[in-house]
Simulated scan of single mutants.
Amino acid sequence: MSSNDLTLPGAPEADFNHLLRANLERVFNERDPARRAAAVADLYVVDPVMYEPTAIVTGRAAICEVAGRLLDQFGLTFAFHADGVAVGHHGLGTLRWHAGPGEEVAVTGTDAAQIVDRRISRLWVLLDPSVR
C-alpha cells in the first residue's frame, strides 16, 4: 500500500463524483480512440481491472477496447448518462447511470470503483435486471 493510498485514515478523499462522471463521459462516451486512451491514462491506475457481468478486463488498453466496442455495437446515438451524484468514502465510490440510444433507456446500472491515489483501480459494472 502506498503512502498516498486513499484508504489510509486521515488521507484526503478523492473527488468521487468527478472521477466516475469523467469515466462515463471521457471513456465510455468517447468515440475517438486516441482521446479515450488519454482519458483512461488520466483516470485509471497503470494496471486497472474492470469487472463486467460476463468478463474480467485487465489493463488500460483492454478497457479502451471494451468501451469502443460498446459504442460501435450500439450505434451513433448510444450514450451513457449519470443519474445523480456519485457517492463514496474510504476509497470506494458508486455512480448510478442509464444508457441507450437518444432519450431511450436501454439499460441501467451502477459503477462501483475502488479509488487508489485519486485514480480508478478497480471498476465493477453492475447492471440492473431488465424490467419488462
Rank of each mutant, 00 (worst) to 15 (best):
D5W: 06
L8A: 05
L8W: 03
L8Y: 00
G10M: 05
G10K: 05
E13L: 10
D15N: 15
D15Y: 07
D15L: 03
L20K: 08
A22L: 05
L24P: 00
E25N: 14
E25G: 12
N29F: 05
E30P: 02
E30Q: 14
R31T: 02
R31N: 02
D32V: 12
D32Q: 12
D32G: 04
D32Y: 08
A34Q: 13
A34W: 00
R36E: 04
R36Y: 03
A37G: 08
A37T: 09
A37W: 04
V49D: 03
E52D: 09
P53L: 02
T54S: 10
T54M: 06
A55M: 01
T58K: 13
G59T: 10
R60Y: 06
A61K: 07
A61N: 07
C64L: 00
E65C: 05
E65F: 07
E65V: 03
R69P: 00
L71T: 05
L71G: 02
D72E: 14
G75C: 04
L76Y: 05
T77M: 05
F78Q: 09
A79H: 15
F80N: 01
H81K: 14
G84N: 09
G84T: 11
A86R: 03
A86G: 09
L92F: 14
L92V: 15
A99F: 01
P101Y: 00
A106R: 14
T108Y: 03
D111Y: 14
A112D: 01
Q114E: 13
V116A: 12
V116P: 00
V116S: 09
D117Q: 11
L123Q: 14
V125E: 01
D128N: 15
